[in-house]
Design a protein around this nucleic acid. Sequence first.
DNA 1: ATGCCTTCTAAAAGAAGA
Length: 274
Amino acid sequence: MLKIATYNINGIRSRSSALLEWLRREAPDIVCLQELKAPDPAFPADAIREAGYGAIWHGQVSWNGVAILAKGMDPIESRRGLPGDKGDTQSRYIEAAAHGVLVGCLYLPNGNPQPGPKFDYKLAWFERLIAYAAGLHDSGHPVVLAGDFNVVPTDEDIYNPKSWLKDALLQPESRECYRWLLAQGWVDAVRARYPQERIYTFWDYFRQHWQKNSGLRIDHLLLNPQLAPRLRDAGVDRWVRGEPHASDHAPVWIELDMSAKKKAASRGRAAAKA
DNA sequence: ATGCCTTCTAAAAGAAGA
């Protein structure tokens, strides 16, 4: 099984030991990280390499920052930065090939407060993502789009929408963008695996929301048609959120069966017998 | 309507997160 995870780490420097412990215990094959909150030279590449992972990263002072890790290999970078706005200097997208899949790692703008310029930027960024993702979807390659989308897709993805109704994460425009993206044919892997369950990936630091399990599902892994049939399992590593000094997000993961198709495999066995 | 809590920056409070 190929295990792919996404984790908004909320500061790579203050969370590097947590990252290493999680890598050691869960051993994902590919990891997408968001919110490094550090410039490129501060990325703990040596410690990550000692843990058995190659990495590429696109940092930024104070905010944003994304990275892709791959177990036992260096990810082959195919893009950094989303196309469509050369004036956009925020580090929010990085993409690489690793272990036979193409991985887009994204950190979609939060968009608060709304309305306002930050919300406009969120929607504009989302529209650029939708435009670019169409090509990825149709590329014929196995592609996963993973990251912090900063969208609560439906009211089933939050403990109680009432106190978040004015938040950028729940706005109809944000949700509409997410639906438009899925309408290209992407499969929301966690929701596909658990159609009915209440699943959260983020619990804010306020009001003991973690202790009360008052969470939101905003970190997603989307699969294109080459990968969706291979989905076998998905989950959230909630134990990471319960550790001392944890990020406000927990890692989200999927497992894909990347073995050859059954028809091809049976043909292979038949050929071997003959 | 705002703060709640946390990180980062930078040296004290402020911005940003979601």
